[in-house]
């Protein structure tokens, strides 16, 4: 399953959490022209460094597919950062 929602949060100095909910699919659609360029750049890099393009694409796809469920939460004193992928 591809990631659907990425939550990025940080705790402000006053101790309150600020959370940003990013819906992945709409953001990917909006940024698709840039993503296309990035993919093209990646494929060119594969050719230059003699890396299998199919292998690289499937590897990155597998990595993205496995992202849901990832969660990083670091808090120190009054500061804190949270990244969660669902």
């Amino acid at each position: 399953m591809i990631p659907q929602l990425v939550t990025v949060g940080w705790r402000r100095r006053d101790g309150r959490w600020f959370r940003l909910y990013i819906p992945v699919l709409p953001v990917v659609l909006v940024l698709s022209p840039l993503l296309l360029l990035a993919v093209l750049g990646g494929l060119i890099a594969c050719v230059i460094f003699k890396v299998s393009m199919v292998g690289a694409l499937s590897g990155v796809g597998r990595l993205v597919w496995a992202l849901p469920g990832t969660r990083f939460e670091i808090a120190e004193g009054r500061m804190g950062v949270l990244v969660s992928v669902r």
Binding site: A66, L67, P68, G69, T70, R71, F72, E73, I74, A75, E76, G77
Partner: peptide, 8 residues
């Protein structure tokens, strides 16, 4: 300090 990491 608190670190909580969950990786599939």
């Amino acid at each position: 300090s608190r670190i909580n990491v969950r990786v599939p």
